[in-house]
Design a protein around this nucleic acid. Sequence first.
DNA 1: TACTGGATATACAGATTGTCCACTAATTCA
DNA 2: TGAATTAGTGGACAATCTGTATATCCAGTA
Lengths: 155, 155
Amino acid sequence: MTIDQLDARIVSLLTTEPRIGVLECSRRLGVARGTVQARLDRLAARGVITGYGPDIDPAALGFGVTAFVTLQIRQVAGHVPVADQLALIPEVLEAHTITGSGDMLCRVVARDNADLQRVIDLIVDVQGVVRTSSVIALDTPVSYRILPLVRAAGG
Amino acid sequence: MTIDQLDARIVSLLTTEPRIGVLECSRRLGVARGTVQARLDRLAARGVITGYGPDIDPAALGFGVTAFVTLQIRQVAGHVPVADQLALIPEVLEAHTITGSGDMLCRVVARDNADLQRVIDLIVDVQGVVRTSSVIALDTPVSYRILPLVRAAGG
DNA sequence: TACTGGATATACAGATTGTCCACTAATTCA
DNA sequence: TGAATTAGTGGACAATCTGTATATCCAGTA
């Protein structure tokens, strides 16, 4: 159900130096290559590791503005669910339903503040969205990281 | 400043099938291996690709509860910045300063709702945090994805 | 026209991967 | 207690991939 210290060390090492490969990883950790491979296979099978895709920085793509948009929803019968429509907007990076009153919270990006207005307009146009309220992320002193959690879980 | 269609296709392919490697990737796209390698190097150099680390699912680690915590800050001179202290809490996956009034928005995870209380208490104990307000993510109909944006950016 | 950047084709040695196997140690269970 | 199961180790193999370098070609540009 959880991970042990070796799992945590493997993930930790691969996170900080993803290009080293399984063999080098096993060398660094002083275990057999088969062990590392088996561990990684198991972590993937258990869903702990969901992928190895390249991490993309939206800002480097020109989407320098990040905002969190809270939606107030009025569910309309016979319509495409709000989430499905939000998923069609590339700038909506993720969307959650949240406690409160059937509302949603979305993370969106945009090229600039004017572009953000465009994105918000797209969201407002979604069937069932009553109104939105946005906060813009000015700075990100702690950007998404999972390593401390992995180490805490594996300690 | 932006990416072209080939870049987008490379990233797209590597995101959906990260294990295929550069060579297989070049075969699938019908371009030379050197081209793919050069593109990836350039994307990494430009900061578009920030890494290739394994993607970890906190829920599979036992942290099934996600919440967004908004902090009201009172900056205290002579103290460790709030963000630095938040960074010490493994359950704080990311933290942003946001528009509004010098507040912050954090994404946190916890093992369950009771555990969330513990994490929130940790946050409240941070010097300079005046109060917090949390919303719990009940469901995530759109989980973090970057591919649509990459495709949109790549024409 | 000459230059530059990007793409292609090709080549090579070295390293890595995917899979086997056999053996050991620890744990579980009948 | 003995058998079965699971995880780790060390070794081995062929097949493949990577890193790197070469020379050529093409298009846009000074």
